[in-house]
Design a protein around this nucleic acid. Structure first.
Ligand SMILES: Nc1nc2c(ncn2[C@H]2C[C@H](O)[C@@H](COP(=O)(O)OP(=O)(O)OP(=O)(O)O)O2)c(=O)[nH]1
Ligand SMILES: [Mn+2]
Ligand SMILES: [Mn+2]
Length: 463
DNA sequence: AGGATCTCGCCC
DNA sequence: CCGTGGGCGAGATCCT
């Protein structure tokens, strides 16, 4: 309830709420029995307060009909877990280790010394002092010159070392974060991996996932897809992935009412593919579409010419012209952004289609940087948050349909606009059409909702 | 030894 | 602080 009322709060526990809403002082060192008694008394006192606030904010349906029943669905998903082919990860670990060893040797040779490649400050010293690469035009962070992927990509034109570092970084990331970490978290009895879905963390209404995070499994690179392929279906089953097509662009079309965008979706256009064809025609189609996605959402959510120029590989002036032309094509979008910011400033918060709120007090900040940041968040939250509303609602409907027609099919994961299910092989067709139907009809918008449904023996095949 | 912060990079 | 937004985690470093 506290999360619905104010999703930006750092804590929603009884202690924090008692302190703020009841004015009760906290004593974290209290003897356990006493602490439990105090928590019980606080919970009892908080209940009518929170109930009244939910009513006053018109959030009773959001809470009682969406978030509360969703909690049980999420619990089932956590309990179900997902099967991991540990042997696949074992092979990758060995392969990656071999390549990393070679890269480390090459890096030391190019640097003329050994150092900790994982240490940005040490790398900075090697690049800009020992090798004397010019730091001209290199971005600075809080602590000094940056060594991130953008910087190293540019430096790669001047020296062979940065490219090797990039290669090392990409592989080391995959190995440490996924290949080495995931097997240790697999339940040895079942071979399955169990995440936590956090329902009260993201300020927009999205879920998050942790311990382990299964919402950021690699997909972009070939090596990444091999990791994703280690997420497999149980014997006799398939993994089914159902992912909304261009979801936030559709929500934007709905909320803004922009006629060009509505027409585009009414006639089945793929805006990501269109952008890709316009500006990334020289790239492989799949990569082009992914880059186009970044650009499409970036522009809509306030990306500047500097960043757009980097993404597009053109001058800032050309990027600025592209952004202007893009927004000019969808005049309703600009108007929606301006109206959303104005309304947010007046009311102090923005809302989603199901009445979720996010307060943005920084909209009144005098510091323009702080204020503009809040304005971009105000633009994004109604759209990202409404998309989160839709898939949460769809999850309840999918769960209901599985109960009657699933034949043992289970929801396993949610990845913001994607549901991953494990389905008995002989129930594939029925479950796929039920899931598609539930997701597409969940909450009719001014544009159709479309869902890409695929299946396979592993998550890489299914996505 | 363990927490906080920073940098970097994975995903939607 | 931030001029796309929203997350989580590994490793290094600094500090207690
Ligand atoms: N602001 C912002 N939002 C993003 C970005 N990447 C993804 N999202 C959000 C918007 C998307 O609608 C949503 C789901 O991501 P997807 O990868 O499924 O993209 P989308 O549904 O637009 O395209 P799709 O047709 O599924 O390939 O996540 C991004 O770089 N910036
Ligand atoms: Mn999608
Ligand atoms: Mn998706």
């Amino acid at each position: 309830a506290s999360y619905c009322l104010n999703p930006s709060r750092a804590e929603h526990g009884i202690g924090a709420l008692a302190e703020e809403l009841l004015g009760v002082g906290r004593d974290d060192g209290a003897e356990p029995t006493l602490a439990a008694a105090r928590a019980a008394r606080a919970a009892h006192a908080l209940r009518p307060l929170l109930e009244e606030r939910l009513r006053a904010h018109a959030m009773e349906r959001l809470f009682y009909e969406l978030e509360m029943p969703l909690a049980e669905v999420l619990a089932e998903m956590e309990l179900a877990g997902i099967l991991i082919d540990v042997a696949v990860l074992g092979v990758l670990a060995a392969e990656f280790a071999t390549v990393l060893e070679r890269l480390i040797a090459e890096i030391y040779a190019l640097a003329g010394m050994e150092f900790n490649i994982n240490s940005p400050p040490q790398l900075r010293t090697v690049l800009f002092e020992r090798l004397g690469i010019s730091p001209r035009g290199v971005r600075r962070g809080k602590t000094g010159l940056s060594t991130d992927v953008d910087v190293l990509t540019r430096l790669a034109e001047q020296h062979p070392l940065p490219a090797k570092i990039l290669e090392y970084r990409a592989l080391a990331k995959l190995k440490s974060t996924y290949v080495d970490a995931l097997p240790a978290l697999v339940d040895p009895a079942t071979g399955r991996l169990h995440t936590s879905f956090n329902q009260t963390v993201a300020a927009t209404g999205r879920l998050s996932s942790s311990d382990p995070n299964l919402q950021n499994i690699p997909i972009r690179s070939e090596e990444g897809r091999r990791i994703r392929a280690a997420f497999v279906a149980a014997p006799g089953h398939r993994l089914v992935s159902a992912d909304y097509s261009q979801i936030e662009l559709r929500v934007l079309a709905h909320l803004s009412g922009d006629q060009a965008l509505i027409d585009a979706f009414a006639s089945g256009e793929d805006i990501h593919a269109r952008t890709a064809a316009e500006v990334f025609a020289d790239r492989p189609p799949a990569e082009g579409r992914r880059l186009a996605k970044v650009l499409n959402y970036g522009i809509v959510y306030g990306m500047g010419a500097a960043r757009a120029a980097r993404e597009l590989g053109v001058s800032q002036a050309e990027a600025a012209a592209y952004i202007a032309r893009y927004l000019g094509r969808y005049p309703g979008v600009r108007a929606f952004i301006d109206a959303t910011i104005a309304e947010a400033r007046a009311r102090g918060y923005v809302t989603t289609v199901l009445g979720r709120r996010r307060y943005l007090p920084e909209l009144g900040a005098r510091d323009p940087a702080v204020r503009q940041f809040a304005e971009r968040a105000a633009t994004n939250t109604p759209i990202q948050g409404s998309a989160a509303d839709l898939i949460k609602l769809a999850m309840l409907e999918v769960r209901r349909r599985l109960a009657t027609a699933g034949g043992g099919a289970r929801l396993l994961l949610q990845v913001h606009d994607e549901l991953l299910l494990e389905v008995p092989a002989d129930r594939l067709a029925a479950v796929e059409s039920a899931v598609r139907d539930a997701m597409e009809r969940v909450f009719p918008l001014r544009v159709p909702l479309e869902v890409d449904v695929r299946h396979g023996a592993n998550w890489s095949e299914a996505h």
